[in-house]
């Protein structure tokens, strides 16, 4: 098995682009941590009315997850049409299932 010795042979332009990309990832991460902290603080301090807390928590979670998908998992990049299509289809099915199980299970 040939030893891999070409570790530096990456196009410098590409390398620069990768670096810029990585900076964006770091910003994304910082925002995710921030949202997490906000979510925990809201609950820990009980600063918000019960009626509002749950929607706010869910919105924070959805934004975080969107970051995760679009930046960390590169769904914003090209070549991800089919993955996005199937993810959205899955999410639609998921929402229907959760709605069904939450709304029409007890009466």
């Amino acid at each position: 098995m040939a030893e891999n010795t070409n570790s530096n042979e990456v196009n410098p332009y590409q390398k620069h682009k990768n670096k810029l990309e990585m900076q964006k990832q770091l910003i994304t991460f910082a925002l995710m941590i921030l949202f997490t902290i906000i979510a925990f603080v809201i609950v820990a301090t009980g600063m918000m009315q019960k009626m509002f807390v749950i929607p706010v928590l869910l919105i924070l979670a959805v934004i975080q997850v969107a970051f995760q998908f679009y930046y960390f998992m590169h769904m914003k990049e090209k070549g991800h049409d089919m993955p996005s299509l199937m993810m959205y289809a899955g999410i639609m099915a998921a929402l229907l299932i959760i709605a069904g199980l939450v709304v029409i299970t007890w009466w």
Binding site: L96, I97, L101, T105, W106
Partner: peptide
């Protein structure tokens, strides 16, 4: 427990 959950999951 709730038996309707099974019905939902099964028919989903």
């Amino acid at each position: 427990g709730n038996t309707i959950i099974w019905e939902h999951l099964f028919w989903i």
